[in-house]
Nucleic acid binder design. Structure first.
Lengths: 135, 135
DNA sequence: CATAAAAGTTAGCCTAGGCTAATATATTTA
DNA sequence: TAAATATATTAGCCTAGGCTAACTTTTATG
């Protein structure tokens, strides 16, 4: 009597690949959000936002530049490229769907904020569509 | 007119900490599952299960040993400690709740397997309780 | 406007989690 | 049982994502 298998190798591989982009998505989403309040998005804003050191932000911004998601010159502010903007908006839409869905099923705001943050990168578009339809 | 903030620094910090244990949980869960079919769980089984090299498994098993989740001697099979067993069962329960919840809202089996795999580490016990009650 | 404070950068370190290649041990099977 | 195959381990490499400390540049202020 074999138990249902909830996972298998291939799914792990997929989730690892996704993982690689998680931080990039979080960053562009953060940059987009911060730029609603401030005209210039600086290193220090992201440092405060994510609670990590300026050095870490600096390193990660270089990855974003390499990935053509942002542009930035030394000591200057950070700007999303059109790719970056698209990814940020996409990310935000997914984030919002998950957040609202969690609220809909009765999860308190604070917890829904935390959970949606963690979950947004691990939900397929199929599942997102269902969640959207249930909001 | 400020937009709702879906995320904030502290949630990121929390999710990073969780991340560190993800692989440990995945491993104990896998070991528990494999041991249902085979008496001995070996390196090679996990290598096939996760689709990563034997060397990687070997390294990670050492982390599990350090974390007192498994015991294993050179060239011998891997056994969950009672801590490991507890974590595995816990993990599996969470996994199962998410999987069944996704099925309940209409997500196809294959996709529910993938998504629940990714999501299980990012859902609070509060949200899990709600999901459980809705299955 | 000079200097102090704030922000940005760089270098060097760490852990986690991958890999390959070489080697060691176990297991199968001719 | 000896040789071939399978599995396990080790060493050394890589990237991502953290950190601190030292230094540079920018910004604010006396």
């Amino acid at each position: 009597m074999k138990k249902t298998r909830f996972s298998s190798p291939k799914y792990f591989k997929l989730s690892k690949k996704q993982n690689a982009n998680e931080i990039l998505e979080d960053y562009v989403e953060a940059i987009e959000e911060i730029s609603k309040d401030k005209k210039d998005v600086k290193n220090i804003d992201l440092s405060k936002y994510f609670g990590v050191s300026k050095a870490t932000i600096n390193k990660n911004i270089k990855r974003l530049i390499k990935a053509k998601l942002v542009t930035s010159e030394k000591y200057k502010s950070i700007h999303l490229t059109s790719n970056g903007k698209t990814l940020a908006l996409d990310s935000n839409v997914r984030h919002e769907i998950v957040f609202k869905f969690l609220r809909k099923i009765g999860v308190p705001k604070k917890i829904a904020e935390e959970d949606s943050e963690g979950m947004e990168h691990h939900i397929s578009s199929y599942t997102l569509k269902i969640m959207k339809s249930l909001i």
